[in-house]
Design a protein around this nucleic acid. Structure first.
Lengths: 245, 245
DNA sequence: CATGTCAGTGTAAAAAATACACTAAGTGTA
DNA sequence: TACACTTAGTGTATTTTTTACACTGACATG
């Protein structure tokens, strides 16, 4: 097994988290320094990405790179786009960066984007050599390459997927309150939902299991906690596929 | 502008059509001949695909290749996957084929899939050098490369998209009957729908405009024809985005 | 013990979903 | 010309879901 890099194919992970207030995304700090001093010339941020190894499949590479940069493993990951415009990554600072990893500037780089979802509270970011941190999706720093495009695509894809699947629950802890679930939907769709109607609707879903447990150490009435049961979801959702139009 | 091929990147179009009975897909016949005779050694089929040119973006390449092979232009096209497993296209006949177009067998080919939708009745396939024809999605011939995987992904993607958008109407003629629309949904989701309830539901949608026109030359009661108005859809659907959960 | 904060609850009215079977309007043919 | 064939088109009663809307409850903190 060789560990040669494929200089023409890269992957980026758009990793989303939800801190009960905002949708956030993981970014890596990128610092350019001059050759002589350690003073940075400029800094910006990138998604969690890199080139793939020759022996890897795309998702495998995405998971490996994510692990290398953040320590994060075993999260929900789904491919959502490939970008390969011939003029992308032609800005000077992008070229400098690519040279840095041995890329031939005459070759086109095709980048495949994955979006990742995780419970932001359960994940410890174990940063490697580079600084990785969470940013609110609607208050981002400058992004390198065409990562702004990539991220916009990812957000759209997340919205669509949330309408037709249960990935929302991968953004929450195992035990969550209905208010937290509601806020998640509100944040992602940018709307306000009626609390009583939301709860009525959700409680009808049999795959939301109420636990014998409440929040603790909150300075207000503690909320009933629920969990999502994928098992129940899969059993009860053969029906749902009839309701499709 | 160069027309050099990029041997590492290809695109495939999974072009769907609906003939009022079945979902169909466009395939190109692939014939291997020995060097000496014109007798084919074997034949199978591929999706509408090829390698991209160095100067093209992915969708641009997909449209160009589709046009070259079939004469089809200006259809709905949407990217749905990138496949790049290191072991793909390693079967002997795939390698023979790739050599044929000058591909170095040590390089990985990444292929980006687009699904296309069109009104099968309005499109004349103007075949070029190779034979292109429609096949029912559930009665396919042997496919080359990993095109079976590609196609399965495309079908899943089509189902998902049909739930959250209006692409269904791109599979129908401009003027269609409610029965035709119903059959389309039934075919794609593999269910049977109640005729009266289906019609009630659809007629409520303001973007379905009844025309002053009926079917003709049918040996039964001719159906009222409707059209889909994207304009009306876009106006009335700001609301819909509230109803999302 | 007062204040702040979020959790949690019910009802009436409107809209949508569901289940279900017959008549209407053409074409083709005897 | 009438009959057979085929698909279009229609209504109602019941159940379920959606909608709009405002107050009390439980905990932590000072």
């Amino acid at each position: 097994m060789s560990f040669r890099i494929n200089p023409n194919i890269s992957v980026d992970c758009v990793v989303f988290g939800f801190d009960f207030r905002q949708l956030k995304v993981l970014l890596v700090e990128r610092i350019f320094q001059s050759d002589y001093s350690l003073k940075p010339i400029f800094t910006d941020h990138t998604l969690i990405g890199n080139h793939i190894y020759e022996h890897e499949d795309l998702e495998e590479a995405a998971r490996r790179i994510l692990k290398d940069l953040t320590g994060i493993e075993n999260i929900y990951l789904e491919q959502f786009i490939a970008l390969a415009h011939p003029e992308r990554l032609k800005k000077e600072r992008d070229q400098i960066w690519l040279q840095h990893i041995g890329h031939n500037p005459h070759n086109r780089v095709i980048t495949v984007g994955y979006f990742g979802l995780l419970d932001i509270n359960a994940m410890e970011i174990r940063a490697g050599s580079r600084k990785v941190s969470w940013f609110p999706v609607n208050k981002l720093p400058a992004l390198a390459f065409d990562h702004h495009d990539m991220l916009n695509h990812a957000v759209e894809c997340l919205k669509t997927r949330m309408r037709v699947s249960t990935i929302a629950y991968t953004l929450l802890p195992k035990k969550f309150s209905l208010s937290q679930l509601q806020t998640l939907f509100e944040v992602i769709y940018g709307t306000n939902l009626d609390k009583r109607n939301f709860r009525k609707k959700m409680i009808r879903m049999k795959y939301l299991i109420p636990l014998n447990e409440k929040q603790s150490n909150v300075s207000h009435k503690p909320a009933q906690l629920y969990m999502f049961s994928r098992e129940v979801y899969e059993i009860t959702n053969r029906d749902l596929f009839e309701n499709i139009i």
